[in-house]
């Protein structure tokens, strides 16, 4: 059953009664599809980001650091990747997080698991996937993201890359207690509300734009149009999608509706997943910032391992989902 049926009725009513477009006409169908998706995604964005940021208010980076310090490496990798789901990721915070973990003696591999999962499994991408592809694809995305983050971290840990970090005297942790002071629940709610509206303000226009172009493709591009170029049998589609995805970080909210429309027109689902993971997980601005604290070689190894994981995931899903 479609959980969003009231929105569907609302969208159809707006299209036929308010605009008004002739019921059953082709244009009416495209417009109603557009209104339905936009309302659905706006609602999901507000609800899910609010819940995630509320959970996050209980898990400041200082607390995550305390938990990770006490774990053995493999558990550490798994937990770090899981924490990565709820932590926001802003390239501004990548370095203090990274250094803060190392400062506390958390192994490099565990730190990398966190660094991979945090941007890749982000709540905006999750909402878009849930809204446009359904919960199965969203769940597949989270699971593959977690697995890639855990294994990339374990591999980097085994490679013993500590010598590729820039010279840094990290010093003692001075005031971890500052951020661990008790917070009132009303403050957590206020934080979640501010954060939710902050993100919403940033992405609402991209959603509108992306869904708009998506609705146009949905209505006016012939089905299977892209199968010839990017169907499951085309070996080059997955790596190509990953390469195109690397410089596109900022617009995840606008790109996913587009990609959803392209999937409808014949791009294989594994290729689509790989593309979205590359958009969120491999970001050029992040690499440029990381350059300040590690040697280029380590960034390339990191990008190589994560990229290989994404490409593998893409092929795997093209193979098992038709």
């Amino acid at each position: 059953m479609d959980f969003f049926w009231p929105i569907k009725i609302l969208a159809e009513t707006i299209t036929v009664k308010i605009l008004p477009l002739p019921a059953g006409s082709f244009l009416a169908e495209v417009v109603s599809y557009f209104i339905y998706d936009v309302i659905k995604i706006y609602l999901l964005l507000l609800i899910i980001i609010f819940i995630v940021s509320l959970i996050r208010s209980f898990l400041p980076p200082e607390k995550i650091r305390l938990v990770l310090v006490r774990k053995n490496p493999y558990w550490g990798n798994i937990l770090a990747a899981l924490f990565g789901i709820v932590t926001p990721f802003c390239t501004c915070s990548a370095i203090p997080l990274f250094l803060g973990f190392l400062q506390a003696g958390i192994p490099l591999g565990v730190t990398f698991s966190f660094l991979v999962a945090s941007p890749m499994i982000n709540e905006v991408a999750l909402v878009m996937l849930l809204g446009l592809f359904g919960w199965r694809v969203a769940a597949i995305y989270i699971l593959s993201g977690l697995i890639i983050a855990i294994f990339s971290g374990i591999i980097i840990g085994k490679l013993k890359m500590e010598n590729l970090l820039a010279d840094f005297t990290l010093g003692k942790i001075l005031q971890p207690q500052a951020a661990l002071a008790p917070i009132k629940f009303s403050d957590r709610l206020a934080y979640a509300k501010d954060y939710t509206f902050g993100i919403f303000k940033k992405v609402w226009f991209f959603v509108l734009l992306g869904v708009g172009v998506g609705a146009w493709i949905h209505g006016y591009v012939p089905a299977d149009f892209l199968t010839r170029f990017a169907g499951a049998d085309k070996w080059y589609a997955v790596p190509l999608a990953v390469i195109i995805g690397i410089p596109l970080y900022a617009n995840a909210a606008g790109i996913i509706p587009l990609v959803s429309a392209l999937t409808e027109k014949g791009v294989a689902l594994g290729t689509t997943l790989a593309f979205m993971m590359a958009v969120t997980g491999l970001s050029l601005p992040e690499f440029l910032i990381l350059k300040k604290i590690m040697k280029l070689k380590l960034i390339l190894i990191f990008a190589g391992i994560v990229g290989a994981g994404i490409i593998f995931t893409g092929y795997l899903f093209n193979l098992i989902i038709f």
């Binding site: 915070s93 203090p96 997080l97």
Partner: peptide
């Protein structure tokens, strides 16, 4: 930044 104990910017 690290000396100030900050992990989020």
């Amino acid at each position: 930044i690290m000396a100030a104990g900050l992990m989020a910017l």
